[in-house]
């Protein structure tokens, strides 16, 4: 290779402050579970330092400053009331209170008066809407339902082609238009087709949009109204696809998507990484939106109905780093 003649271009590491910062950051790799274990080991009883450390751990899992403080405060109360002295007990208590935050929001999905059930997939760019749409199609197919896909992301380059591949993979037909077409128009066609063909589930993949773009958010509102006009009780589900790595901005995403699109539930994607999606707890707590599904990989069956117990277990129990 010619380039090797010029030597490696790897830059020497900067020493000093950065190295120390790096060291500091390496500590976060300890999973929340390890942190809690250390809290537990540190203190036989439950003292203020232990609780504070716990609060920090929750923040490190993206629960956010407010929710972490609230949860810790509740824990402090209960620990005192129930005379909890043991760290392990404290941990169980934490688990149950986090689980409760999620479970409190669980509500049965809207009943479908007559098929098709219409599911609108919404979210910011790059969270995995198209992939989730494909996996969701497979999920309903496995339940023996007939599914139709609507490629309403007419904006992003090759989004339609991407969904087509998912259509082939799952053996599901797809209603589409050309790139740059009107998403509400293709949605209208898909709704008509789903009704005419007596399809069980219509899943609508929409373009990713930042929640701060008012014009694009209004477009979603229009799509929702289009749906309502054809099928009065639809959309039955509006799923916000949320990347598990999302930080505190997730709350704002959920808030604004709920305002314009009427989000009914969350799909937490990319949970196969090291991020555990703690923001979902903050969203459940502050906005009352439940988590419906969890995405755990790129394969067609890597989508599971959300299980709050397993989620909290993973958040608190599983070692985060599957490497040295």
């Amino acid at each position: 290779m010619i380039q090797t003649l010029f030597g490696s271009l790897d830059q020497p590491q900067e020493k000093g402050f950065f190295d120390r910062m790096k060291q500091a950051v390496t500590r976060t790799r300890d999973s929340l579970s390890e942190r809690i274990d250390s809290v537990v080991a540190m203190t036989r009883g439950v003292d203020e330092a232990a609780l504070e450390e716990l609060e920090m751990s929750l923040i490190a899992s993206d629960l956010g400053v407010h929710v972490s403080a609230e949860v810790t405060e509740q824990l402090r109360e209960r620990a005192r009331r129930e005379q909890i002295r043991d760290g392990a007990e404290l941990r169980e208590l934490l688990k149950s209170s986090l689980k409760k935050i999620l479970d409190d929001q669980e509500k049965p999905p809207k009943t479908v008066a007559a098929p098709p059930e219409v599911i609108l997939m919404v979210g910011v760019n790059g969270t995995g809407k198209t992939t989730t749409t494909g996996k969701l199609a497979a999920y309903y197919r496995r339940q023996g339902k007939t599914v139709l896909l609507c490629a309403a992301d007419t904006f992003r380059a090759a989004a339609i082609e991407q969904l087509e591949v998912w259509g082939e993979r799952t053996g599901v037909e797809i209603i589409k238009t050309r790139q740059g077409g009107d998403p509400s128009a293709v949605l209208f066609d898909a709704l008509e087709a789903a009704k005419a063909r007596k399809i069980d589930v219509l899943i609508v993949d929409t373009a990713g949009r930042l929640h701060t773009k008012t014009g694009l958010m209004a477009e979603l509102d229009k799509m929702r109204r289009t749906t309502q006009r054809l099928i009065p009780d639809a959309p039955h589900e509006v799923l916000l696809v949320l990347d598990a790595t999302t930080g505190q901005n997730g709350l704002q995403q959920a808030r604004l998507f709920t305002e314009s699109a009427g989000v009914t539930g969350i799909v937490l994607t990319k949970l196969d990484g090291t991020a555990k999606g703690g923001i979902a707890i903050a969203i459940a707590r502050e906005l009352g939106v439940p988590v419906r599904f969890a995405g755990i990989g790129e394969k067609v069956d890597d989508l599971l109905p959300f299980d709050s117990g397993a989620f909290v277990e993973a958040l608190l129990g599983e070692p985060a780093a599957s490497r040295s």
Binding site: R29, I59, A60, D62, T245, T246, Q248, T274
Partner: peptide
Amino acid sequence: NPQEILFVADAMTGQDAVRSAE
């Protein structure tokens, strides 16, 4: 043998950013 290896990261990333970047 690239001159630049650019890490493309989402500005909305939370606490996990350090793990992936590292």
